[in-house]
Each structure stands twice: as C-alpha cells, then as structure tokens.
Amino acid sequence: MNLLSPLAALGRLTQGALATVGRIALFAADAVSHLFRPPFYPREFLVALMQIGWFSLPVVGMTALFTGGALALQIYAGGARFSAEAVVPSITAIGMVRELGPVLGGLMVAARVASSIAAEVGTMKVTEQIDALVTLSTHPMKYLTVPRMLAATLAVPVLVAVGDSIGIFGGYLVGVNRLGFNPATYLANTRAYLEAFDIISGLMKGAAFGFIIAICGCFYGMNSARGAQGVGRATKSAVVAASVLILAANYLMTEVFFSA
C-alpha cells in the first residue's frame, strides 16, 4: 500500500464534502431566486408552517425544559468551586438564549423536519410525482422548496423563542426547587444580566438554521436515487448535512456576533 494512500483518501473525502456544500449553496441560491418570482403557493406555505412550526413544538419544548434544568445544575456545581453559585440564573438564561436554545432546537428540528422533507420529496422523486408536477406546468422549486424554505426560516426562530422561555423556566424550577434559590431573586437575576441582543442573536441563528434545514431536506429529496434505499440514503444525508451545517453556521455566527 502506498504511504500516501490515506492522504489521497482524505483529499477525496474533503473534495467530495466541499463539492456537496457547493451544490447545496447553488440549490439554495436558486431557491431564494424563486422566492421573489410568481407564482406563489400560499396554501403549501401554510401547510409547511403548520408541519414545521406547530408540530415541532413538543420536541423543542421538552428538549429545552430538560436542557435548562441540567444547565442550572451544571452551572451551580461548577460555580460552587469558586463560590459563584449566584450566577446560575443569569448564566442559564444567557446560555439558553445565545447558544443552547437555537443549537439544540435547530438540531431537534433538523432530525424531525429535514428527514421528513427529504423522505417526502425523495418519495415524490422516485414515484415520478416531481416529473408529474413539471408536466402540470408547476415548477417543483416553487411548489415544493420555496414554501418549505420560507416556513422553516420563519418558524424556527419562533420555536427557538418558545424553547428559550421553556429552558429558562426549566432552570428556574431546578434553581428554586433543587438548589434553594429564592424565586424572586432568581427571576430578578435572570432579567438583570440578559440583554436584548442575546435574544436577537439567538433568533437570527434560528432563522439561519431553519433555512439550512429546509434546503438540506429539499436538496437531498430532489436528488434522491431510485428505490427505498435511495430515499433512505437521502433522508440520512439530509439530517447529517443539516446538523453539520447548523453547527458550522453556529460557530460562524457566534464569531460574527460576539468576537470582541
């Protein structure tokens, strides 16, 4: 075996990953260009909004509740090492709205929605429903991608806002009932150090993550290979790509928003 073989394999892998990111970016640019050109499909948008936003509420809410509680416990345990237990309310709130609310919410929605979109669109592809759309003078990008992209971009920030509130409430429940904080003091400390931009930055991340989720779902669905295996692979790829891109976008946005 050539000593350079592992490097060559790594190079091929990197090249393939970058090519995929490039194809997703071109697909996203095409989808955005269709956003402003008629015809528009408001019914499809409302259905997507319901499926992505409303039906994701339970999973995002449960994730945020337990994360907020665990975060409060961790900060209390860590803070106790240097007598900083009092920072639990403010750090829990800041941690939730800046980072954990959008990222965990985004990842949960990615698992639920990117897979669902990829499976639905992929099945449409392999059963010729997308070809049928074209023959019925309907552009698949306008009918399938644009409503989902718009719905996810608008719905995920709302889910993040709800998740942030539930997460902070989870921290409050643990803080007051397990860690012995005074309820009024906990709430006052939460409010005192939380800034508007902490919340806004989290919502902006949510919008970006929603966009990524819908684009990955539609991209892999529309490029699905034939058969059940093809749809399965498209679904898996959509979730993996959306998750990785969410984490990468989160780092980049954090750099932009908070690097000194």
């Binding site: 099945t123 449409m124 059963t127 010729e128 429903q129 070809d131 049928a132 759309l133």
Partner: peptide, 8 residues
C-alpha cells in the same frame, strides 16, 4: 405516468 404519479 406508468405508476399514476398521483400526489399522495
């Protein structure tokens, strides 16, 4: 279409 291709 061969399989009908109806929208589910």
């Amino acid at each position: 279409f061969q399989g009908g291709a109806l929208f589910d």
